[in-house]
């Protein structure tokens, strides 16, 4: 049937190794484990690695990379709307008048 892809064992195995290495990396850059501290960028680094892992799962395990581009588009639009949801909500929260304001 058209649209079914050959599952390539090598690709899947390499993806698994990549995910495991990234997990180890996440642990290694954690301050309590290695003493590594990038200040306010700790969060950015942790979330960056996590996003990379999610991207690998989507691209290879869920096969979005080689499948119909429509599915990729759907995925991207979902992420876009999620970011929009968080983004616009946070614009409110970070720009609110402080509690002791006389406004």
């Amino acid at each position: 049937m058209a649209g079914h892809h050959q599952l390539n064992f090598k690709v899947l195995r390499n993806t698994l190794f990549a995910l495991l290495s990234l997990t180890i990396l996440t642990v290694l850059v954690a301050k309590p484990v290695s003493g590594f501290d990038a200040g306010m960028f700790n969060f950015v680094i942790a979330m960056g690695i996590a996003s990379l892992k999610a991207g690998l799962v989507l691209a290879y395990f869920m096969q979005l990379k080689d499948d119909n581009k429509l599915y990729l588009g759907l995925m991207i639009s979902c992420v876009f709307f999620l970011l929009l949801f968080f983004g616009l909500s946070f614009i409110d929260i970070i720009s609110r008048a402080p509690v002791d304001s006389t406004l």
């Binding site: 616009l88 409110d92 720009s95 609110r96």
Partner: peptide, 16 residues
Amino acid sequence: FVWGHHMFVSGQSELA
């Protein structure tokens, strides 16, 4: 993009 129009008097920030 527009949901905040229900919240103009909720305490939402002026910028939002």
